[in-house]
C-alpha cells in the first residue's frame, strides 16, 4: 500500500524538477530575446553623449535630437515612400506569379519558381551591387526608382510564398460551387477567391513592408544622399557619432511598431495579420 504511493511521490518530485528546468530554459530564451531591446531602451535615457551602460545620469534629450536630426526625418520619409511602392508592387506581381504557379502548369514552371525565389539565396549586397552597376550605365543611381526596383526583387519571394500558401489552402470546390451557381470567372474571383485571400494578401504585404523598411545591405549600395532610407541614415550617423540618439530612435521604432501591430490586431486579429491561421 505505502510502497506504490512513495514511488508516486518520487515520480512527482522528478516531474517537478523537470518542469523547473524547462521553465528556466524558457525564461532564459525569453530574456535573451528581449535583453538587447531592454539594454538599448535604457541607454536611450543616458544623459552622457556616449553609449555606456548602465547610465549614471538621465535625460530625454536624445529623443529630441532623433526627431530633429534632418537625415533621420528624411530617411524616414524616403523609407515610407520606398516601402509603400515596393511592397505594393511586390504584392501585385507576387500574387500574379503565385496564382500562375498554383493554377496552371506550363513549360519552365520549375525554372520560373526557382528564379522567383532566388533572392533568398543570393546575398543582398550582390543584388544591391548588381543594380548599382546597371543603374550607373543609364545614369540613374540617384533615383527612387532604383531603390524601389531593388526592394521589389528582395521582398518578392516572401510575398509570393504568403499568397501561394493561402491559395493552396483555398478549397478549389468553393470556386466550382460559385461557377455552378452562375458566377463567371471574374465575378467568382472578386466575390469568392479574393475575399478569402485577403488575410494572405495583407500578411504578405505587411511582411514585405517590414522587410523593405528595415532593409540595409542592398540599400547601402542603391541609395544616394537624396534617397537614403532610415537604416542607411542610421549607419552613416553611427560612423560619425557614438551618442545615444540611435538608442532613442530604437525606442521610438519599437513603440511605433507595437502600436501599429496593436491597431492591426484590433481590426483584423493578429493571427490573420501574421497569417498563422493559414500556415499548416
Amino acid at each position: 500500500m505505502s510502497d506504490p504511493r512513495k514511488r508516486l511521490i518520487s515520480a512527482k518530485a522528478g516531474e517537478r524538477l523537470l518542469a523547473i528546468a524547462g521553465w528556466t530554459v524558457v525564461w532564459l530564451v525569453v530574456a535573451f530575446i528581449i535583453l538587447p531591446a531592454v539594454v538599448v531602451g535604457i541607454s536611450a535615457f543616458n544623459d552622457r553623449a556616449i553609449l555606456s551602460f548602465p547610465p549614471q545620469a538621465w535625460s530625454t534629450r536624445w529623443f529630441a535630437r532623433a526627431f530633429s536630426y534632418r537625415d533621420f526625418s528624411e530617411g524616414f520619409r524616403n523609407g515610407l515612400i520606398i516601402t509603400a511602392f515596393a511592397s505594393s508592387i511586390a504584392l501585385v506581381v507576387g500574387a500574379g506569379f503565385a496564382f500562375a504557379l498554383d493554377r496552371y502548369s506550363f513549360r519552365g514552371k520549375m525554372a520560373l519558381e526557382a528564379v522567383l525565389t532566388s533572392p533568398l539565396v543570393i546575398p543582398h549586397f550582390t543584388i544591391g551591387l548588381g543594380f548599382l552597376i546597371l543603374a550607373a550605365q543609364i545614369h540613374a543611381t540617384r533615383t527612387f526608382a532604383l531603390v524601389i526596383v531593388c526592394h521589389v526583387v528582395l521582398v518578392l519571394p516572401f510575398v509570393m510564398r504568403s499568397v501561394y500558401v493561402s491559395l493552396r489552402n483555398l478549397d478549389s470546390r468553393l470556386e466550382l460551387a460559385a461557377a455552378s451557381l452562375g458566377a463567371r470567372p471574374g465575378r467568382a474571383l472578386f466575390t469568392v477567391t479574393l475575399p478569402l485571400l485577403i488575410p494572405g494578401l495583407f500578411s504578405g504585404w505587411l511582411f514585405a513592408a517590414i522587410l523593405s523598411f528595415n532593409e540595409f545591405t542592398a540599400s547601402l549600395f542603391v541609395t544616394a544622399q537624396a534617397t537614403q532610407t532610415l537604416p542607411v541614415a542610421m549607419y552613416n550617423y553611427v560612423r560619425e557619432y557614438a551618442d545615444p540618439t540611435l538608442a532613442a530612435l530604437s525606442v521610438i521604432y519599437i513603440v511605433v511598431t507595437a502600436l501599429l501591430l496593436t491597431i492591426a490586431n484590433a481590426f483584423l486579429g493578429l493571427g490573420k495579420v501574421l497569417n498563422v491561421e493559414h500556415v499548416r
Binding site: 466550382l176 460551387a177 460559385a178 455552378s180 451557381l181 452562375g182
Partner: peptide, 20 residues
C-alpha cells in the same frame, strides 16, 4: 456550355459553403 451557364445545382460532399 461553361459551368456557369449550365443551370445545374451542385451539392458537394464537404458542402463547400462560402465561409465569409
Amino acid at each position: 456550355t461553361a459551368p456557369y451557364d449550365r443551370e445545374i445545382g451542385v451539392v458537394f460532399q464537404n458542402y463547400a459553403l462560402f465561409p465569409h
